[in-house]
Amino acid sequence: MSQVGSHDAAAEFMGRASNAQKLQALLHRYPWLSSAAVLLIASISFSFFNENFLTPGNLSLILQQVAIVGAVAAGQTLIILTAGIDLSCGAIAIFSSMVMAKTFMGDPYVEGDGLPVLVAFVIGLLVGTFAGWFNGYLVTKFKLPPFIVTLGTLNVFIALTLIYASGRTVTTEEMDPFLLQLGHIINIGEFKVTQGVIVMLLLYIILAFALRFTGWGRHVYAVGDDINAARLAGIQVNRVLLSVYMVAGLVFAIAAWIVIGRVTVASPNTQPDLNLDSITAVVIGGTSLFGGRGTIFGSLIGAIIVGVFRNGLTLAGVDLYYQVLAVGLLIIFAVTIDQWIRKART
């Protein structure tokens, strides 16, 4: 292809491309395809092992189980698209859930000490957004690698959660019904999903819209793709990065609401694996850790794949340890595919 735009040469090149190259080119264009294929194959395989797998009841259960990780992965995707990473995402979610519950409850020994539930809720959302801003500020202002920044703030937010909770769980009885709202079940035909699942899906739809159809979304991709090119094109790179970390923080705080709905208490020790599980979902969903490439719905598929593997292997009677092993192999598989796709020429 040395001659510029020789159509014949290009056509000839495409004609000579092997099937592997064509597949590579296809996946290069639609990186979520491989994860969708994995999901499909896994679901069909598991349905052979256990006839209950593909029932609406079981599929509803899987969705309920992935609602939290799925919501956090939505925010995580934004950050990874900018070639960043957020190791503190789960800590932000748990911190926000603690703030929501405890500012509502106040001092449990003083009657009516807490704030109105909506005020407490909004404060929780603001705390999550502010935590995201703090990460983004360190990344943009001091040019620190996001990995290091969020490794630090992971510990900071865990510590703040423990300090604020003062080692105490806010129990279901002390909680306002509004905070528990997302645990309620909605029937959609045969499916029974929690409202948390619906909120998670809404998050995906809104973020997918913003990424696909707005200038902001395009700038997010451009910054992750080549930050210098984006800067020279006149994009205010730091503002884009800061907004991404803040939106992600807000998403983590909304995930906190889903957490409370699911576990029905606010505890500093809940969901310890959330940080890494969200990254797992994003990576399995085909988003490149090098930034600029991937789709947000891929992360939803990624989260569901992890849920399907855990659930399917359990139904097939596979030991828990082997489930962890399977997820580990999945991650390695996903990253290998990503590396291979990135080499695609056409």
């Binding site: 991709y221 451009a222 793709d225 210098n228 090119a229 020279l232 094109a233 600029g292």
Partner: peptide
Amino acid sequence: VYQTLAVAPAL
């Protein structure tokens, strides 16, 4: 137009 081609490759 900069020497380093200020274009975003994936876009």
